[in-house]
Computed example of a mutant assay.
Amino acid sequence: MRRILMALVALLGLIAVPARAEDAGRLIEYERVEAAGLPPQRLTIWLPPGYDSSDKRYPVLYMHDGHNLFDLKNSNFNKIWAADKAMLRVMGQGIEPRIIVGIWAPGKDRFRQYLPRPAYDAAPPALKAKMDEIAGGPVISDAYLAWLAGPLKAWVDASFRTRPGRDDTAIAGSSMGGLMSCYAIAARPDVYGQAACVSSHWPAIGPDTVKGFNPDTLAVWTSFFDRTLGAPTGRRVWMDHGTATLDAFYAPYQEPIDGEFAKLGWQRGTDFESRVYPGAEHEENAWAARLPEILAWLLRR
């Protein structure tokens, strides 16, 4: 294991971002990370206030689309989640600070890296053909999850003062990243104790081709959760959506999925939450606005 970790460290290109004031934490960027079976990855890691002046160990929050989390200059649409500010805000409400590991999306490969492989494999031919149109290559989310839960987590736990247990490890993302977060907590209950599946893109096809509700797509998801999710066993999942732009298509999927969670013994308000934000659009400013609420619910003790 030590050799594996050392090899991984050797592959990481480190750029130290100038430290912020101690009361705001600090960011570190890793420009290129090689991961087996995946396009080159990139990381931005936020260390909370006090990390550098103590020997405290911290729980960890892994987040997809890391380029859209902290810094406008890295963002796709000049909008960010402001994840560090959201964490600082909930820390003021008594939530324990977490290290945030932002994993950048790999450009054109984002869809095929985030589309849960079991959903793709179970899709009927017409739906799979639409998935293939946007994927542009083999679906690799199984390799991505194996890397997230394996080599990446091992390196983070070896390189930073973390608490590596399941109850101290969360994962979060929006849209396709929301699907990936639900996939992670369902398929790897040994690793992830909390997941935020924000504005999850349940239609699972290109946004320009979403025309309405597809019962075949819903059947893929309900079957996936029925086979994979299991009882909560101490895990916690947040799900939500808005009602405008792309989020307007999500309610017919989300409501039955909520029912699937309940059928499997998940208690709403305790084990899972599912909320609707009237008027909220499918974009980073909307997710930033509700991220403190998400973190306060998801990361509470």
Score class of each variant (00 low, 15 high):
residue 233 T to K: 06
residue 233 T to Q: 05
residue 233 T to W: 00
residue 233 T to M: 03
residue 233 T to G: 00
residue 233 T to Y: 00
residue 234 G to C: 01
residue 234 G to E: 00
residue 234 G to R: 00
residue 235 R to F: 02
residue 235 R to N: 02
residue 235 R to M: 05
residue 235 R to V: 05
residue 235 R to I: 06
residue 236 R to V: 06
residue 236 R to Y: 13
residue 236 R to G: 06
residue 237 V to F: 06
residue 237 V to N: 10
residue 237 V to L: 14
residue 237 V to K: 12
residue 237 V to P: 06
residue 237 V to M: 11
residue 238 W to C: 08
residue 238 W to Y: 15
residue 239 M to L: 15
residue 240 D to T: 13
residue 240 D to E: 06
residue 241 H to Y: 12
residue 241 H to V: 02
residue 241 H to C: 13
residue 242 G to P: 07
residue 242 G to C: 00
residue 242 G to M: 06
residue 242 G to L: 03
residue 242 G to N: 05
residue 243 T to R: 07
residue 243 T to Q: 07
residue 244 A to Y: 02
residue 244 A to M: 00
residue 244 A to N: 02
residue 245 T to C: 04
residue 245 T to Q: 02
residue 245 T to A: 06
residue 245 T to W: 02
residue 246 L to A: 04
residue 246 L to P: 05
residue 247 D to G: 12
residue 247 D to A: 10
residue 247 D to C: 14
residue 248 A to T: 14
residue 248 A to Q: 15
residue 249 F to D: 15
residue 249 F to V: 12
residue 250 Y to G: 09
residue 250 Y to S: 09
residue 251 A to W: 14
residue 251 A to V: 09
residue 251 A to F: 13
residue 252 P to N: 01
residue 252 P to Q: 04
residue 252 P to E: 03
residue 252 P to S: 08
residue 252 P to M: 09
residue 253 Y to C: 09
residue 253 Y to P: 13
residue 254 Q to A: 04
residue 254 Q to Y: 03
residue 254 Q to E: 11
residue 254 Q to S: 15
residue 255 E to G: 07
residue 255 E to L: 03
residue 255 E to N: 09
residue 255 E to R: 09
residue 256 P to W: 11
residue 256 P to K: 00
residue 256 P to Y: 09
residue 256 P to H: 04
residue 256 P to D: 07
residue 257 I to E: 13
residue 257 I to Y: 09
residue 257 I to T: 11
residue 257 I to F: 01
residue 258 D to K: 11
residue 258 D to W: 05
residue 258 D to N: 07
residue 258 D to I: 07
residue 258 D to S: 08
residue 259 G to P: 12
residue 259 G to E: 10
residue 259 G to L: 08
residue 260 E to G: 03
residue 260 E to R: 13
residue 260 E to M: 04
residue 260 E to L: 02
residue 260 E to A: 12
residue 260 E to Q: 14
residue 261 F to P: 04
residue 261 F to K: 05
residue 261 F to L: 08
residue 261 F to E: 14
residue 262 A to K: 04
residue 262 A to L: 08
residue 263 K to N: 12
residue 263 K to V: 08
residue 263 K to D: 11
residue 264 L to Q: 14
residue 264 L to N: 11
residue 264 L to P: 00
residue 264 L to G: 01
residue 264 L to E: 07
residue 265 G to F: 01
residue 265 G to H: 03
residue 265 G to V: 02
residue 266 W to S: 08
residue 266 W to G: 02
residue 267 Q to V: 09
residue 267 Q to G: 11
residue 267 Q to A: 13
residue 267 Q to S: 12
residue 267 Q to I: 03
residue 268 R to H: 10
residue 268 R to Y: 08
